[in-house]
Amino acid sequence: MIRLNPKYIPLLATALVLLAVFVTGSLLYPNFGTPRVAVNLLNDSAFVGVAAVGESFVILSGGIDLSVGSMVAFVGILIAKLLQVGWDPFLAMGVALCVGTAAGAVMGGLIHFFELPPFLVTLAGLFCLRGLGFVIYPESIGIDHPFYGQVLPQLSILVAPKAVLPFTAMCFLSSVVVGTFVASFTRFGRNVYAVGSNENSARLMGLPVGRTKITTYALASFFSALGGIVATFYMQSGNPASFVGLELDAIAAVVIGGTLLTGGVGFIPGTLMGVLILGLIQQIIIFNGTLNSWWTRIVIGALLLVFIVLQKLISRGGDRETLVAAK
């Protein structure tokens, strides 16, 4: 029998849940399992997904980022406003990414240098960014730039008859690929795991703890800002009041994706699956048509609980294995 490394168990559990949800949907509704529904799912989840990739890094490092929803809304209204006053869309997006990443680096710096809890620092970030969005413009601004109206729809791939993979979905999938690569194949990525698992040990092992933490928050905010850009593609507008609580969806997706909330254990592809599970549940409830959409929340809550308990059981199991080995 193949001995399964315990660290893959949460990932496997996530994959099984994803499969179960998908099969359930397909059995209940004949059109559920079509490529078209799949690309819609990717499109609808794209901006949450991009942000969740960033959130994965923060959670892997043992922290938390609550500023995601505000960042997405802030970037949205920033771009909409800049386009309204006649900026080039690429310049506007570039500025948005830089501002977002810088905000993340500042939060990371505060967390590291002043040894402040990430929860509070990013909560402050949540308020500041939300407020700044309203400062830029207090209401929704529609985007009617030709790039959005004419170029974007063409940046898509026909993956199956009647199923077009939109650009938003491509952004999402590339973020997952890039995130996976950074997490698994760069020294920075491995340092994130080490810091999240045991910060003190990481320091004594000579790892650059401070640099890693600051970079982690900067990277997470970069992904949040990118999520904000993807959201403008999706909504064709920017609104400073939108996406309240998006960070909680991102955190839920990360945890359901098998990443340990205490840090150090998890995989970026797990986050992809977590996002898809959330999206699929929503799809099923939409297909049903009679259920109130709040049922999505209830199911997500229940799943989240199941996964937290599962993680606890696994980490206990890990301890037991150690004891046996020690004997």
């Binding site: 020294r187 491995r190 080490a194 003190n200 092992m205 790892l207 650059p208 254990v265």
Partner: peptide, 20 residues
């Protein structure tokens, strides 16, 4: 022991100076 329990033995030995 100041190592990272969740990572593999190999990684613990090479962490921070992995061949790239």
């Amino acid at each position: 022991v100041n190592l990272i329990p969740h990572l593999s033995v190999a990684e613990n030995i090479c962490l921070g100076r992995q061949p790239t």
